[in-house]
């Protein structure tokens, strides 16, 4: 067994050493899809390179690049979640409150894992229930789009046999160009630094 353990950690070390910074030429994941990000100047490592379409709680079709211009705080949730997701949403509301006067200069986005049940109507209900103001954007996407976003955010999620999800509780901060600048894992986490990072982005 010892030998296998060693192999296991060797694999992890090996993978962990993979550096990501390289020369990058801008290109979209799938040039056939979407048009907004295609010709605009999206930075190569921006999350906005994801060109899949999402639907908002107001039934508008958008690509993530339409969030550009302001920093965005992103959480991934599902509305049938009894504990963690309302909690994560409340954490994001606290971040919003702590931004005070800067609040309006920041997008707050919640993306649902639940591609089956969380349609725009359901997301609108959740928004009302959680008392999220009109500046919040709640997104429904197809399975491909949602999985790809989770991969880009390095977030784990799994759907169980009953259609519920286990998932990382992760709040991510994107700058106005869609670059991932900060992440904080955990519920009730201390978001002093998160707020600081956002305020820095607004300077």
């Amino acid at each position: 067994m010892k030998k296998y353990n060693f192999l296991f950690f060797a694999v992890i070390l090996f993978v962990g050493c993979n550096n990501v910074n390289t020369t990058a030429v801008s290109n979209n994941l799938d040039e056939g899809k979407g048009s907004v990000a295609k010709n605009s100047a999206v930075a190569p490592e921006s999350i906005f390179n994801l060109t899949d379409t999402f639907q908002t709680q107001k039934k508008n079709n958008i690509v993530l690049a339409s969030l550009s211009g302001k920093p965005t705080v992103v959480g991934m949730i599902f509305t049938n979640c009894g504990y963690a997701c309302p909690h994560l949403t409340a954490d994001m509301k606290n971040i919003a409150a702590k931004l005070k006067g800067n609040r309006e200069k920041v997008n707050f986005a919640l993306v649902s894992f639940d591609t089956d049940r969380d349609n725009p109507e359901q997301l609108q209900k959740f928004a009302s229930m959680m008392d999220l103001d009109k500046d919040w954007i709640l997104l429904h996407g197809n399975e491909q789009a949602v999985r790809t976003l989770s991969v880009l955010l390095n977030l784990q999620f799994d759907k169980d046999a009953e259609g519920n999800f286990s998932h990382s509780n992760l709040i991510s901060v994107l700058d106005k160009n869609g670059m991932l600048v900060y992440q904080k894992e955990g519920l009730d986490a201390d978001h002093v630094e998160t707020v600081e990072k956002i305020n820095e982005l607004l300077k």
């Binding site: 993979n18 550096n19 990501v20 020369t23 030429v25 979209n28 040039e31 921006s46 390179n49």
Partner: peptide, 17 residues
């Protein structure tokens, strides 16, 4: 799919290896 050539690929989607 030229965007998937080694010299053109976006580092967000494929690392330097």
């Amino acid at each position: 799919n030229p965007q998937w050539q080694r010299s053109r690929v976006n580092a967000l989607f494929a690392d330097k290896n």
